[in-house]
Amino acid sequence: MYWNWKAGGLALGFTFLITVAIVQPIGVSTEFVLFDAILARTVNPDLVVKDESAKSGYASSNAYLNQSGGKMAKSVAKPMNYGIAFVLSIALGGLLGRLSSPKHKERMQQVPECHQRNFSNSYGQRYILAFLGGVLVLWGARLAGGCTSGHMMSGMMQTSISGYLFALGAFITAIPTAILFYKS
């Protein structure tokens, strides 16, 4: 149903390579902050303001958005940018991937089998766990400065020290958590 590791690894490697060759390394988790800031700005328009003295031409009252000369503040002010368009397009790719799969007409198992074996087939419980997982993953990714895409894949591809030490941290907790949490 899925590509084997040889075909899949070459396709995934090619994707990371062509993207860095033509534009920049792939990264995803920064855009979560930008989505938050774009939403927050609809309530508080002063979150990001024009500032001639800032390197990017924009500044923010939020210390995180104001880093690196307001680079992220600028992306909030001009949301039609590469990073956001890239991340939104991932969903389109996921749809095309499913439609092109040989078994795409079969009904999708919405509650993962791992969850059903260990807990229940209840949607609510799975949605709560997925939500909590999302909170931890993005909080951790922002502290680390990248996620599985930006640090692990793109970082290790570039032989970054940070990419290797990020991957070490992620697997050190993920493997025991998965083994203990999903016992059967």
């Binding site: 792939i26 995803v28 988790s29 979560f32 991340v87 939104l88 991932i90 969903a91 790719g93 996921g94 991937g97 993962p112 791992c114 766990l129 997925a130 909590l132 997982g133 999302g134 909170v135 931890l136 993953v137 993005l138 909080w139 951790g140 990714a141 922002r142 502290l143 680390a144 400065g145 996620c147 599985t148 895409s149 640090h151 940070s162 030490l165 990020f166 991957a167 070490l168 941290g169 992620a170 697997f171 050190i172 907790t173 993920a174 493997i175 958590t177 998965a178 949490f181």
Partner: peptide, 24 residues
């Protein structure tokens, strides 16, 4: 970087998603 990776790892194992794969 490593501490954040460790926190991410817990959520990754519970949910089975990371940021990019969740959007796909």
């Amino acid at each position: 970087v490593t501490i954040g990776g460790m926190i991410l790892g817990v959520g990754w194992a519970i949910a089975g998603f990371c940021p990019g794969t969740s959007i796909a």
